[in-house]
Computed example of a mutant assay.
Amino acid sequence: MHEERGDLVLSEAEQFRALGHPLRHRLLMALRQRPATFAQLAAALGSTKGTVGYHVKILERAGLVRVAYTRQVRGGTERHYEPTSQRLRIARDAPVGGEFLVRAALAEMMPADKDAPDVTLLRHVRLTTGQARALAASIERFANGEHLTDQEDGQPYGVLLSLYRADIPVLPAE
């Protein structure tokens, strides 16, 4: 596990097991807003502090969250947790591929809202390796761009960008 351009590069089975549970995925998404305590996370997710604590500890052992800071309160120590990185990237040699993040995105998608933009496109193209590399670099630049920064008054949206080799049959020449 290492960081690349601010991304947490997922490569270990423990990381994928930790992210595979829907509540842990939601905890990680909530923590991307700001550091939070078990109580704050429990309130946001409609869960109990004990359940949240159990799942946060699994995320912490997998290297996905860490203690951002602690604070003394009424004779105890309150821990505020944060993600170890704002973005996830799957390592080339990971035990799973991009389908893992696609499933995660599907799980968090809400039904379409007539007042909110909702665009999902699937396009298949035939590219040379050089063209695929150029498109991958373009996707990276888009994902790293200023136009995708969080807005305080904004609504949550997911952006899933993927370039993948597709298993599409090729018709023989006529």
Rank of each mutant, 00 (worst) to 15 (best):
V65Q: 07
G75H: 01
A30L: 01
V159A: 05
T37E: 03
S138K: 07
G63Q: 06
A112M: 11
I168Y: 04
H21Q: 14
H147G: 06
R32F: 06
Q86K: 15
A112T: 15
L135H: 00
Q151H: 15
F142I: 15
D113W: 05
P117Y: 15
L148E: 10
G63D: 12
R141H: 11
Q15H: 06
G145E: 07
T48H: 00
Q33C: 09
T51L: 09
Q40I: 03
E14C: 03
E174D: 14
D93P: 04
P169A: 11
R17I: 08
R126W: 10
L127V: 13
Y164T: 11
E146H: 14
G50P: 00
S138P: 02
M109I: 04
E152A: 15
I168P: 01
A36W: 04
G53V: 05
G20L: 10
R92P: 07
T120D: 08
H147R: 13
E82A: 15
R26Q: 13
A105Y: 10
Q151T: 14
P95E: 01
L23F: 12
S85T: 09
P156T: 07
K57M: 08
S138Y: 12
S85V: 13
V159E: 04
H80R: 10
S162H: 07
A30V: 11
A36K: 04
P169V: 14
M109T: 10
L8S: 00
A166H: 08
M110I: 10
I58M: 14
L163C: 06
G98L: 13
P111S: 04
F100H: 02
K57V: 14
L160C: 00
E3H: 04
L88N: 02
G20H: 06
Y69C: 01
I58L: 15
L121F: 09
A36Q: 10
A112Q: 12
S162N: 13
F142C: 09
A132P: 02
E146Q: 09
E14I: 01
V52L: 01
G158P: 03
M1D: 04
K114Q: 13
R34I: 10
E152C: 08
Y54E: 12
F100S: 03
S85W: 08
A143T: 07
A136D: 06
G97D: 13
A91N: 03
V56A: 10
G154I: 02
G97A: 10
I58T: 11
E78Y: 01
R71D: 09
A166S: 13
A104P: 02
L8A: 05
G97M: 05
H147Y: 02
I90C: 04
L135T: 04
H21N: 09
V67H: 03
A136K: 11
T70V: 07
Y54H: 12
K57I: 07
L160M: 09
T77Y: 03
K114S: 15
L106S: 13
R89I: 08
A18N: 02
L160T: 03
G46R: 11
L163W: 02
H21S: 03
H25V: 00
A173Y: 06
E3Q: 07
A68R: 05
T48C: 01
L135M: 09
A42L: 00
E4G: 01
A105S: 15
V102T: 13
G63W: 15
E60T: 13
F38P: 00
Q33D: 14
G63Y: 11
L19I: 08
Y81A: 00
M1L: 05
G50V: 08
A42T: 08
D150K: 14
L88Q: 01
R66Y: 00
A94G: 03
I90G: 06
P156H: 05
E3K: 06
S11Q: 12
